[in-house]
């Protein structure tokens, strides 16, 4: 990698990279296949959370019992990723490194405050997911570095969670998506995280809305206000499938629905 600086690409599942190669949008001099590195294929539970190797595919995330126990939002959300054959090949490392602003795993990493583990010539380092995504298809990863694993911290006991996305077709990239996680205390929101995808240059949290929700019950008035504020705070782009206005509208819809689900789950024993 170091000797082919700027001319090399890593490939794992290839589900994002290969279309770009087939369209001849990229023409790397060197492709390094990391899909067989056994260390990258592990899902490991620790006291702090769950560490997922970069080579773990979406399908394995969907079926992981470790995640189902501690972070079921990840299992659940994987069903929205493309289709079965893509989920069998596409990896978490590939998805995060690709950094598509409308992809599910970058959103989950940001929502769940994941640590992204990176190794390179200068040694190992860890980036916070929130700092990792810089722009569409652009991350903090430099050309001679490899994303090796992601650690998702445990959710607080009794957390409610929700994920919603809207796409033109089953499995298509989201026009807008939202993930929410919250805990309740005495019937009001004690802690909450809300993250959006597809409606900005990168997936991102909406801290002002999170702050507004603290100490409140998710009632119709709060909901309407949150939905309105989401629409004010996102910054979507127009493309062939949806205008910025419509995406802004959808951002409010998916945020509201994700929080509906999180609130309902938060009440479950």
């Amino acid at each position: 990698m170091a000797s082919h600086r700027g001319e090399a690409k890593l490939i794992a599942g290839g589900q994002s990279l290969m279309p770009m190669l087939n369209f001849r949008l990229l023409d790397p001099a060197l492709l390094v296949d990391i899909s067989r590195l056994p260390d990258l294929a592990q899902i490991t539970a620790s006291g702090r959370g769950i560490t997922v190797g970069a080579g773990v595919c979406h399908h394995a995330l969907m079926r992981s019992p470790e995640l189902a126990e501690r972070l079921p939002i990840i299992n659940h959300t994987m069903q929205y990723v493309a289709h079965m054959a893509i989920r069998n090949r596409g990896t978490i490392g590939g998805s995060l490194a690709h950094g598509d602003p409308a992809a599910e795993l970058p959103l989950l990493a940001v929502l769940l405050d994941a640590d992204i583990h990176i190794t390179g010539p200068a040694g190992d380092r860890t980036a916070r997911a929130e700092d990792f995504f810089l722009a569409p298809l652009t991350t903090d990863l430099s050309e001679d570095e490899i994303l090796t694993a992601v650690t998702f911290p445990n959710l607080a006991a009794g957390s409610g969670w929700g994920f919603e996305e809207i796409a033109r077709r089953t499995g298509d990239f989201a026009l807008a998506g939202a993930g929410a996680v919250l805990t309740l205390h005495h019937g009001v929101i004690a802690d909450v995280r809300l993250a959006m995808m597809g409606v900005d240059e990168t997936p991102r949290r909406l801290p002002a809305i999170e702050a507004m929700l603290l100490g409140r019950a998710w009632d119709a008035g709060v909901r309407a206000s949150a939905v309105r504020q989401v629409r004010e705070q996102v910054n979507p782009m127009s493309d062939l499938q949806a205008s910025a206005d419509y995406r802004r509208h959808l951002a409010g819809v998916v945020a509201g629905r994700a929080l509906d689900t999180a609130w309902a789950k938060g009440h479950m024993p």
């Binding site: 033109r168 077709r169 089953t170 298509d172 990239f173 062939l240």
Partner: peptide, 16 residues
């Protein structure tokens, strides 16, 4: 042509 891939030219799948 902006609809120059099957991502952009949206043909229905079984689920639609």
């Amino acid at each position: 042509a902006l609809s120059a891939s099957l991502v952009d030219y949206v043909a229905p799948s079984a689920a639609e």
